Simulated scan of single mutants.
Amino acid sequence: MRILKGLFGKVDQLLTGRRPVDDELFDELEECLIQADISIRTAAKLVDTVREESRKKRLRESEQIKESLKDILKRILVSGADATLAEPKDKPTVYLFVGVNGVGKTTTIAKLAHRFKSKGYRVLLSAADTFRAAAIDQLEIWADRVGVELVKHRPGADPGAVVFDSIQAAIARGIDAVIVDTAGRLHTKSNLMEELSKIARICRKALGRDPDETILVVDATTGHNAVNQAREFAAAVPLTGVALAKLDGTAKGGIVVTIRDELGLPIKLVGTGEKLDDLDDFDAEEFVNALFET
């Protein structure tokens, strides 16, 4: 995740050197964290925790505060087994991808299909975004480019039927992974969110279990709006994690901390470029260290 280097530049500058630890420092630190796209609530919580640790450990210099902050960020971002994307295990393993239009969802799906195929898995893409004809065509282009199978219906068809047929086809063909593309639903449209819930129920009917992963794709450059989207989607379907697309020099990075802290959702995948190989597993320690690099 070298592309993230220095995204907490102002925080790093504030805490570099031998500046005394006082209330003014903590106030400026909270302001810098908010400017780095961390929510007001999470920023206040971070500063309160750093302040408490500095009191207990008798930290006297800003460099010590920086190391304390890095440790706290890593504790927030690191979790158990849920932090990594499930590998294809039970045939077929189903990955449901959700998110609004324009966040990079279809590209993320193609990158994941490429990753799985490179590991020797058989992959099928499910074109359940029937709302736009162009979405079906786009997914078909990616399927051909990556060299994986595709199940599609006509534009305007029932997305649930596409998902059901995709799972049945995967069972019949011995497919390892089914990756489902859904319409770019606006998180303010309750009827579309209900349709998404229906797709999840159809997965349960066809598989006898929930989708193995339900991943929300958000655009890292949209800041707090992405957090609001995550809240809305989590209310419609049981999300298992987040894929951050476009986490490059235009993003400030704080959204990662806010999503994990306020919503309890692990960041599982990170898109760092336009190429098919530009999809990384999220590494909390590497991420935090990169934020403070200069």
Rank of each mutant, 00 (worst) to 15 (best):
Tyr95Gln: 03
Ile202Ala: 08
Asp261Pro: 02
Arg145Met: 03
His153Gln: 14
Lys5Thr: 15
Cys203Asn: 06
Ala143Trp: 12
Ser68Tyr: 04
Val270Phe: 01
Thr108Val: 04
Leu73His: 14
Ile65Ala: 03
Ile215Cys: 05
Gly80Pro: 10
Lys119Ile: 08
Leu85Arg: 00
Gly160Lys: 07
Gln64Leu: 11
Ser62Asn: 08
Thr221Phe: 01
Thr16Asp: 13
Phe164Gly: 09
Glu61Ala: 07
Ala83Thr: 12
Lys268Ser: 11
Pro88Val: 15
Lys246Gln: 04
Glu67Ile: 10
Val47Ile: 08
Arg154Asn: 13
Lys45Phe: 05
Lys89Met: 08
Val162Ser: 00
Ile72Pro: 14
Asp278Gln: 15
Thr49Arg: 13
Tyr121Ile: 08
Glu28Val: 02
Asp219Ala: 08
Val218Cys: 03
Glu87Tyr: 11
Met193Lys: 01
Asp165Met: 15
Asn101Ile: 12
Leu269Asn: 11
Ile109Trp: 05
Asp261Ala: 14
Asp210Arg: 08
Thr42Leu: 05
Gln168Arg: 11
Gln64His: 10
Arg75His: 07
Thr108Ala: 10
Leu265Trp: 03
Arg201Pro: 08
Ser126Pro: 09
Gly271Val: 12
Thr130Ile: 11
Arg204Glu: 15
Lys89Gln: 05
Val178Met: 05
Val148Lys: 00
Leu15Asn: 05
Glu286Asn: 10
Val98Trp: 00
Thr214Met: 02
Thr107Asp: 02
Ala143Phe: 09
Gly102Ala: 11
Glu195Asp: 15
Ala36Arg: 09
Asp48Gln: 13
Val257Gln: 06
Ile76Thr: 05
Leu186Ala: 07
Ala110Lys: 08
Asp212Ser: 11
Val270Tyr: 02
Asp277Glu: 15
Phe164Ile: 05
Asp248Thr: 11
Ala183Val: 07
Asp37Thr: 11
Arg122Pro: 02
Val180Asn: 03
Asn225Arg: 01
Leu7His: 13
Ala172Tyr: 15
Leu125Arg: 06
Val98Arg: 04
Thr221His: 04
